[in-house]
């Protein structure tokens, strides 16, 4: 059972990190550490999307 749970957690961790979903959690944790109020999720994600706008991701053949 614990092995299954650990595997599931691993997969979930991987997918969340891979897709960038966990960035929000990191950000909230960092804000907490630094004692600053975090922005809303919408503002945060929009800020991230705007950065991608000017850094084209290369995709190969």
């Amino acid at each position: 059972m614990t092995a299954v749970v650990r595997a599931w957690r691993g997969v979930r961790w991987y997918l969340r990190t891979f897709s960038g979903e966990s960035r929000w959690d990191d950000y909230v944790a960092a804000c907490e550490r630094d004692g600053v109020p975090p922005a809303t999720r919408r503002e945060f994600e929009r800020h991230r999307a705007d950065r991608v706008e000017h850094a084209p991701m290369a995709r190969c053949c």
């Binding site: 997918l15 969340r16 897709s19 960038g20 979903e21 960035r23 929000w24 999720r41 919408r42 945060f44 994600e45 929009r46 999307a49």
Partner: peptide, 14 residues
């Protein structure tokens, strides 16, 4: 969906 309804929920959207 990702921009307005559920910002940041990439896995769910995918």
């Amino acid at each position: 969906y990702l921009r307005y309804l559920r910002p940041g929920r990439v896995l769910e959207t995918t």
